[in-house]
Amino acid sequence: MNSFIRHRRLRRNDAIRTMIREHHVRVDDLIYPLFVVEGKGMKNEIHSMPGIYQYSLDQLETELNELMQLGILSIMVFGVPLEKDEQGSQAYHSHGIVQEAIRWIKERFPQFYVIADTCLCQYTSHGHCGVVENGEVLNDPSLSLLAATAVSQAEAGADMIAPSNMMDGFVAEIRLALDQHGYEHIPILSYAVKYASGYYGPFRDAAQSKPQFGDRRSYQMDPANAREAMREATSDIAEGADLLMVKPGLAYLDIIYRVREAFSLPIVAYNVSGEYAMVKAAAKEGWIDERKVVEETLVGFKRAGADLILTYHAKDMANWLKG
């Protein structure tokens, strides 16, 4: 009689493998990033992100109809303005591109849950996420601008505010401003754990947000640090965050796991632009099976503890889930 355990009994065929599968990716878990630009007749494919486009408002209808048919009803809106200045004033202008996009979407597609990216880097002439003075990104003067941006997005109809700047105290400042303006019901998805990563390159093409000098290591986290991630998440929860983001996702599955084990708030993994671009490039060359790699990656986020996934693969994944 054999004394060893036969684990393969539960791998014998598709039926049993499906029955005992521990983690699943559902279309409801997916958030789709949407880039909006000023102008008309604009549908610009981002060269480093095949299949991802910048849209002017008059081109959004077809895209949103496709998302709706796929069952993807959660979107995050990123804006690309025509005008930039030192203070990033288009970020908090009542008629800024994100504010106009939110109004447009809510008027025509009220069933969508619209999350507003709340940052300054796309709107500043220097490309940094805050106020710059003598080459230094200042923390406290940046907070009032971020709060003004969040309030203007809520006024436009955003369902959720997602501040991504990594300034100290940004959640507290935004929570206070939202509450004072009567938006106590608007949740904050904090980019609580955002690393100074090399995986962001294609996004900076899409959002036209590359820093004009230096880098963002004075406010985004060192990729080598894990304990610091827990401090960041702890402080954001204390300041009023409702959900926590870990960005990037793929190289930081251990961080997602640590945050999940420590806190009960919903966790969002950002499957970032560089991760998307690498898969698309390798798949184009025939080096990988794109579907298998994407499915494996997204279920990896869920296995690590993520509740939701912000991903450029959302439409592909939704199509595969539909069979």
Rank of each mutant, 00 (worst) to 15 (best):
Q122C: 01
Q122W: 01
Q122P: 13
Y123A: 04
Y123Q: 05
T124Y: 11
T124H: 10
T124V: 10
T124I: 09
S125H: 01
S125Y: 06
H126R: 03
H126C: 07
H126P: 07
H126Q: 10
G127K: 07
G127V: 08
H128Y: 12
C129S: 11
C129I: 05
G130N: 03
V132G: 00
V132P: 02
V132S: 01
V132L: 00
E133W: 01
E133D: 12
N134P: 09
N134S: 15
N134R: 12
N134V: 02
G135R: 03
G135H: 10
G135Y: 12
G135K: 05
E136R: 06
E136V: 12
V137S: 05
V137R: 03
V137T: 10
L138G: 02
D140V: 11
D140F: 08
P141N: 04
P141V: 03
P141E: 02
S142F: 06
S142V: 04
L143P: 14
L143G: 04
L143N: 02
S144D: 13
S144P: 01
S144V: 14
L145R: 14
L146A: 02
L146C: 01
A147S: 14
A147R: 00
A147M: 05
A148V: 06
A148W: 05
A148E: 15
A148S: 15
T149Q: 13
T149W: 05
A150M: 06
A150K: 01
V151P: 11
V151D: 13
V151F: 12
S152F: 03
S152H: 11
S152E: 15
Q153S: 12
Q153G: 02
Q153P: 01
Q153L: 15
Q153T: 01
A154V: 13
A154N: 12
E155M: 09
E155Q: 14
A156I: 07
G157T: 09
G157K: 11
A158Q: 11
A158H: 08
A158Y: 08
D159L: 14
D159V: 13
D159R: 14
I161P: 10
I161H: 05
A162G: 10
A162S: 15
A162I: 05
S164G: 09
S164Y: 02
S164T: 07
S164F: 04
S164H: 04
N165H: 10
N165D: 15
M166V: 08
M166E: 10
M167K: 03
M167V: 00
G169V: 00
G169A: 07
G169P: 14
F170D: 13
F170A: 05
F170M: 12
F170H: 13
V171I: 15
V171P: 13
A172Y: 06
A172Q: 13
A172L: 10
I174Q: 04
R175M: 08
R175E: 06
L176V: 09
